[in-house]
Design a binder for these strands. Structure first.
Lengths: 345, 345
DNA sequence: CTGTTAGCGCATTCAA
DNA sequence: TTGAATGCGCTAACAG
């Protein structure tokens, strides 16, 4: 059996309460006593039973998630994952509040962060927009001792505790290398469709894509990036224009959301088999398009993993505990038609 | 607060012990009483606090892992993950025993399964070999009420509870599609190096690869598969011969382990940049080779995830609980030089 | 068949 | 500054 607080108390010749004080370094223990206890802890190789501790504390963690509104499937999937986490609240001892804000609207986001602060939660997870007012709002939360994790899109200039998302420069590079190799010697320019250059993840992906294309396909012409606001209708319109303007278009990299529009435009114009299309996020639509060949590859971040990771990190930070970095690293997944997970995700 | 056993007892007008009997459907409760309690459970929406239950039970799960010996890095990594799980034993309430057996040796494996049975564990995780004597040994464990999970390589004909590994037909298909697209119009045959056709995972990968190549690159010549026993030295020898015999070799798919040999042969002969090489499993060697360009793509299964999943399933099965399918699904990861995880894995 | 009671490992009053 | 006692939600002897 592993040692318990009783063993420590016995070995150190003190009471349970004193052991507890040392363990949770609470005040009111003499230096010598503390030393005695710490030696006993060391000698016995004690590790606290977190489950029992939580049981005794019956602690719950009030958490706030701030998510963008909008019509795109990825964000809806993310929201669904937060709902799923809410359903696990009893088990995970969390109490989750969700705040919705208009997409790509920095003032609204800053205001939502203030609202979250008013709720006095243990932690806040937020899909960030890269703006100074948002940075300030996040920093204020931190000053109040509230843990903050950015979700999907990061906010590097802020004092956020952690980023639960993928390395988007690397994601863009991956897309670039795939595009370069899939096109091979084929002629023609490549287009890039983004959601908005306001969010960090889109800027990072663009940067990575450009760099990798330059390496794996030097001389290939990249068209100026267009921004579709992650809105399917807008993306459809933009892609249709691109296809009309460039009859020799060889490839499209869609680095944001709203892929329903991309897919619709490609299929409507009959260019779905000739243009190499690489997009982000596995949704029912993109899955179908990958299977039919309209999309050639899909990069994905596991929204469920991101939400679960954000919760783990927030809880740990709220308790002042360290997190295991490796477990919280979100992978960039690559899907071809052959390695799609079987469940409709 | 969520309802507890006390609430149920009060509502149903019975004692704690009776509630517990119903909850864990133990015998010795009259039908009417049982009904009363069940109605109360239903009405209150009770969900058991697993942590508290485990604390009260102070149950531990004796588990046995049976792993193949051998010089390849993947299996050593798997063993390391099992060791890591062992280090978490106190927290996860497990007691893990590891049994090593010679690789690709069915009789030895069957014997190890018998040995495991003698240890009377709650569950056994085994890297399977597809042979009737192994099937029989697994079935015997199951008859004794011991949970069995196959790890990495499956045993479809047996009564194992679960397979903790990837869909290897899909993995092979993925490799085939990548190979076809990376080669494009380039001439020349493609070689396949396996470990042994005795294990299911290698047979499955070969099948998938052949099918996908036929689709994405019809007419491309596939050389007869060679078997390197997952041994770096043997693989080196075989690949060197292939390279010598086929000056026009366009690609190599290494579907087993022992990639150090593959990499060495390619680099020694200076064919590393001209031959498109796709292999399995991320190791320090394969990572370096991917970054240098000797390997063009890497398929991977997360050994850590597989081990953790096997343990979760084994524990759940030992308790007669259901598992959440989605969480236990092991993904086929694709790595290019651009999306490698940063930690040396 | 049912109920009482005493823990599991830890945190937290309240006294001393 | 320290200790004794009680309870978190659940299980398991042991009585009745």
């Amino acid at each position: 059996m592993r040692p318990t607080v009783h063993d420590i108390a016995a070995k150190a010749g003190v009471s349970l309460a004193t052991v507890d004080r040392v363990l949770n370094n609470r005040p009111g223990v003499r230096g010598v006593t503390r030393d005695k206890v710490e030696r006993a802890i060391e000698a016995l190789g004690y590790v606290r039973d977190v489950a029992a501790a939580n049981l005794a504390k019956s602690r719950i963690y009030p958490l706030v998630f701030i998510l963008p509104e909008g019509d795109n499937t990825f964000m809806r999937g993310l929201a669904a994952e937060v709902e799923a986490a809410k359903a696990r609240s009893a088990v995970e001892r969390t109490a989750i509040t969700v705040l919705s804000v208009p997409a790509f609207d920095a003032p609204a986001l800053a205001q939502a962060l203030e609202e979250a602060r008013g709720l006095d939660p243990a932690g806040v997870a937020v899909v960030a927009i890269d703006a100074t007012e948002v940075v300030r709002a996040v920093d204020r939360l931190r000053e109040d001792g509230i843990a903050v994790v950015t979700l999907v899109s990061d906010l590097p200039g802020s004092s956020r505790d952690h980023f639960a998302g993928v390395d988007n420069v690397a994601a863009g590079r991956t897309a670039g290398t795939l595009m370069g190799r899939f096109l091979g010697g084929r002629e023609g320019p490549v287009a890039v469709v983004a959601g908005s250059m306001l969010v960090r993840d889109h800027r990072d992906r663009l940067e990575g894509f450009g760099a990798a294309m330059a390496e794996s396909a030097p001389g290939r012409r990249l068209l100026p990036v267009v921004e579709g606001q992650d809105d399917p209708g807008e993306v459809d319109r933009l892609v249709s224009n691109l296809l009309a303007d460039h009859p020799d278009l060889a490839g499209i990299y869609s680095l944001g959301a709203g892929n329903r529009g991309l897919i619709a435009a490609l299929e409507r114009t009959g260019r779905d088999k000739t243009v190499c299309a690489i997009a982000h996020e596995l949704t029912p639509h993109s899955r179908t398009a990958l299977l039919s060949g309209t999309l050639d590859a899909l990069l994905n971040q596991d929204a469920g993993h991101e939400v679960r990771s954000a919760i783990r990190v927030l809880k740990a930070r709220a308790d002042g505990l360290a997190v295991i970095g490796a477990q919280e690293r979100i992978r960039i997944e690559i899907f071809l038609k052959d390695n799609l997970p079987v469940d409709p995700a």
